[in-house]
């Protein structure tokens, strides 16, 4: 475990060093993704402010939830960037290189393509959480910070699992890059508003199919002392870590199956 953490830190360090070789690109990447997140939030703010809230949720609470999902996306974009662009890594023959090294493929894939631009959504997320807390202060309890950390990890695992399932199709020489982009954009869109604002079908989809509602919406009920979810009841409010773990296990299963089916890239 200690060695794995040391390796991931070394990946981040070398990724950072590589990125700062091109300072304009480095700063531009971070600022670009920061603005991208903030502009989406501003669009939401204008709309929500006009109605004073959405399905009982206040503007501050919604921005708090959106901020949480932005931080999770920032981790995916930076630390797990290699998994997001896995299709490209397979086509460029990186998998062969990972397979001839005595480390897990996922750990290598994640670290080897570290992208500092993911700092943008993380900074935006922190800013949106502060904005949300100022507008709608949550109940201050002893478990608030640990719960938010658990939610952060669970939400990251849910997103990671989805890109792993899509990415593992590349092992079968199938190009699914467009699906990764579609999933990322849909996740953005869904998480900008509370899941309860959508139809029953969509709510079911984001709870059971693509469990994006566990990234912030259900956990935020506990943060703001909202009693229960109308559709799925109280248990789902506590299930973010279970959803994160379950999603990750499905992602890992798909990933392992893909590696076993891998035919290699390059010549015969």
């Amino acid at each position: 475990m200690k060695r794995s953490i040391a390796l991931q830190l070394a990946y981040i360090k070398i990724g950072f060093k590589s990125a700062i070789q091109y300072r304009v690109n480095f700063i531009g990447g971070v600022i670009g993704l920061l603005l991208h997140s903030l502009l989406a939030a501003v669009g939401g703010i204008v709309l929500i402010d006009r109605f004073g809230g959405v399905v009982g949720w206040e503007l501050g609470q919604i921005m708090f939830m959106f901020g949480l999902t932005r931080i999770q996306s920032g981790f995916i974009y930076s630390v797990f960037r290699g998994v997001v662009r896995w299709e490209g890594q397979v086509r460029e023959g990186w998998v062969d290189r990972y397979l001839v090294r005595p480390r897990g493929i996922l750990a290598q894939a994640s670290g080897a393509d570290f992208d500092i631009a993911g700092l943008g959504p993380i900074i935006a997320g922190v800013g949106l959480i502060i904005y949300g807390v100022v507008l709608s202060p949550p109940d201050l309890t002893w478990w608030l910070v640990p719960w938010l950390l658990i939610v952060m990890v669970s939400g990251t695992m849910i997103q990671l699992a989805i890109v792993m399932v899509i990415g593992s199709s590349a092992f079968y020489n199938v190009r699914m890059g467009s699906a990764t982009n579609a999933a990322e954009r849909s996740q953005w869109q869904m998480n900008l508003f509370p899941a309860s604002a959508y139809s029953t079908v969509v709510q079911t989809l984001v709870t059971i199919g693509l469990p994006w509602a566990f990234m912030a919406f259900y956990p935020a009920h506990l943060v703001y002392g909202v009693a229960s979810d109308e559709l799925f009841g109280e248990p789902v409010l506590y299930l973010a870590p279970v959803a994160g773990l379950a999603a990750f296990l499905i992602g890992a299963w798909s990933w392992r199956r893909g590696i076993r089916s891998y035919q290699g890239m390059g010549g015969v």
Binding site: R3, L7, I14, K17, Q108
Partner: peptide, 16 residues
């Protein structure tokens, strides 16, 4: 884009 020695440092950790 990183110095050769940095690549070696990462490989050192990969191969323990």
């Amino acid at each position: 884009d990183a110095p050769l020695v940095d690549s070696m440092n990462v490989l050192k950790l990969i191969y323990s």
